[in-house]
Design a protein around this nucleic acid. Structure first.
Length: 262
DNA sequence: AGTGTATCCTGCAGGC
DNA sequence: TGCCTGCAGGATACAC
């Protein structure tokens, strides 16, 4: 869709989504062609002709849309006029998202700071266990830290921990090798099934074609406070720590170390 | 060094 | 109806 198109004009409607001055942002994009578009963690990375990349993090409510009809966009923040086809719009109600143009070396530094891709072969159970053993952080916070593993958000962190039978507040280093292996498998299953179902729509989320994802009904604990656990029927418990909601089954995910090991 | 907390912003649901 | 409060899929500056 985007590759091969030239960015002819940039209009910044809300500069607070930019990580650099509006003028720099626009100057570095104008006249460039979009090349290949990739994803790294939660970042969309579009390579630009002549070197450099446009990095977009959608935050909570951001979307990149090719806008044929203005009604598709409610809170446009940045509009790119392209050499062909409809304009590309970054639309974001809450404006927690971020856009930044950087050169290759800047991106390399940023990329290096991100943890492994959980669906790639560089993410191993053994490596996960070794990394966990160096942190006393609650495992849910650990999973949300993009420097540890890239791309896991609050929904999938809670879901994976439930699948693995691990309480969200367990210190990372308290996980046994067996538990780390279970968590590794649970993360992969949770993420790939979410991808297969085209993402989780709780309220706003739409894919790039404007279609809601199908994964919400597949969630086992997230958003299911007081509902019976699908595994043992115990009521799911919602609580807050680290300023984020956590959901777990008190029976399947005991706070203490599970019987297998310690 | 590694953690937890507060904060950015808007819209919506629910209680009164 | 309308006001108020709490909640939300993320990231990060800052204090401890």
């Amino acid at each position: 869709m985007l590759p091969g198109k030239t960015i002819e004009r940039i209009r910044v409607l809300h500069s607070d989504v930019l990580r650099q001055p509006s003028r720099d942002f626009s100057a570095r994009l104008k006249g460039r062609d979009f090349e290949a578009v990739h994803r790294r963690g939660k970042n969309i990375v579009a390579r630009l002709s002549g070197g450099g990349v446009l990095v977009v993090n959608l935050g909570m409510s951001g979307r990149l849309v090719l806008v044929r009809d203005e009604a598709q966009t409610t809170h446009p923040a940045v509009r790119f006029t392209l050499s062909a086809g409809p304009p590309l719009v970054y639309d974001d109600v809450r404006r927690f998202g971020a856009l930044e143009v950087m050169d290759e070396s800047e991106w390399a530094v940023r990329d290096h700071r991100l943890g492994p891709e959980p669906l790639s072969s560089s993410f191993t159970a053994r490596g996960l266990h070794a990394d966990l053993s160096r942190s006393v952080s609650p495992i849910r916070s650990w999973l949300l830290d993009q420097r540890r593993v890239a791309g896991i958000g609050n929904i999938y962190a809670n879901e994976a921990l439930h699948l693995a039978g691990i309480h969200p507040q367990r210190p990372a280093k308290s996980l046994s090798e067996h538990e780390a292996r279970r968590l590794h498998r649970a993360i992969r299953r949770t993420l790939s099934s979410a991808v297969d179902n085209r993402g989780t729509t709780l309220r706003d989320y739409r894919d790039s074609s404007g279609i809601p994802g199908n994964n919400a009904s597949k969630l086992l604990v997230y958003g299911r406070d007081q509902e019976p656990c699908s595994h043992c029927s115990t009521r799911i418990h919602r609580f807050v720590f680290g300023n984020r909601a956590a959901f777990c089954c008190p029976n399947c995910q005991p706070v203490g170390v599970s019987s297998s090991n310690g």
